[in-house]
Structures are given as structure tokens and as C-alpha cells.
Amino acid sequence: MSNYIFLHGLQIKTKIGVPDFEREHYQNLHIDIDIELKKHSPFDSDDIDETLDYAQIEKIIVTIGDNHSYKLLESLGEEIVSTIKRQFAIKAIELKIAKNKILPSTDFVGVILKR
């Protein structure tokens, strides 16, 4: 048995991009995150201590986006993943970060990190 929580469609603003001009202004990023919990007990206790608080995960991601300026989505993703792994007992994590309208023929470009 596996237990997951997820936040999909999270939008943050951050300064990111390889060219300097991209980092001059905040850009919108789209984030999906799936977290597999270490605890395998069923979700029948109705106890927040048996899971992760979605608001805490959102706050971590938004805070990292607000306080850092990265060139690469990969670096931003590593910071998010490593912070969550340090703060919570998790078994696995999958993070998807996408930027929109960066290339003329695409809606989104991005990265997926699995740990």
C-alpha cells in the first residue's frame, strides 16, 4: 500500500532564465508535485500527523521561488526537492516545473525530477 499527496497546477512567480533579460522580471511557473509518504497506514485516522499538510508544501515552494533567482529550472527543482526531503519523512517525490510561451512553437517547456 502506498499513500501520496499531490499539489497540481500550483503557479508561482520567480526570476529564472539563462539570459540576463529573462531574470529581470518575474515569470510564471506551473508546478505539479506528487509525494509518496513513508507511512503506509491507511488514511482512516483523520489525523494531520499521518500525512503532510498541503499548505506547508505550497509555502516551501512559493518561498523558494520568491527568494531565489536561478538560471535553470533544474536548479530550482533541486532546491525544492531537497528542502522537502530535509523537512519531511517521505519515500519518493516527483516534481514537474513548466514555463509557458518560451519557445515560439510550444505551449510549455520544463523538467521533471524524480527522487
Rank of each mutant, 00 (worst) to 15 (best):
L73T: 01
I31R: 01
L103Y: 02
L10G: 04
I12W: 00
L37Q: 08
K96C: 09
S41Q: 13
F43Q: 13
F6C: 09
I112T: 11
E78Y: 13
D49S: 14
E50W: 04
P104S: 10
K13I: 02
I90P: 02
A89H: 09
F43N: 14
E78W: 13
I64M: 12
K15W: 01
M1H: 15
D46E: 13
D34V: 07
E78T: 04
K99D: 01
F88Y: 05
N67D: 05
G9S: 12
L52V: 02
H8G: 12
H68S: 13
S2I: 09
I12V: 03
Y4N: 03
I84E: 00
E58C: 10
H8M: 15
L52N: 01
I5L: 11
D34S: 09
F43E: 13
I102T: 04
F21I: 10
E78C: 03
G17K: 06
I57H: 00
F21G: 07
L52P: 00
L7E: 04
L29R: 00
I5G: 11
D53C: 10
T63R: 13
T14D: 01
K39F: 06
G110A: 07
T83S: 12
A55C: 05
Q87T: 10
P19R: 08
I33G: 02
Y4H: 07
F6L: 08
R23N: 06
I90C: 14
D34T: 05
E36D: 08
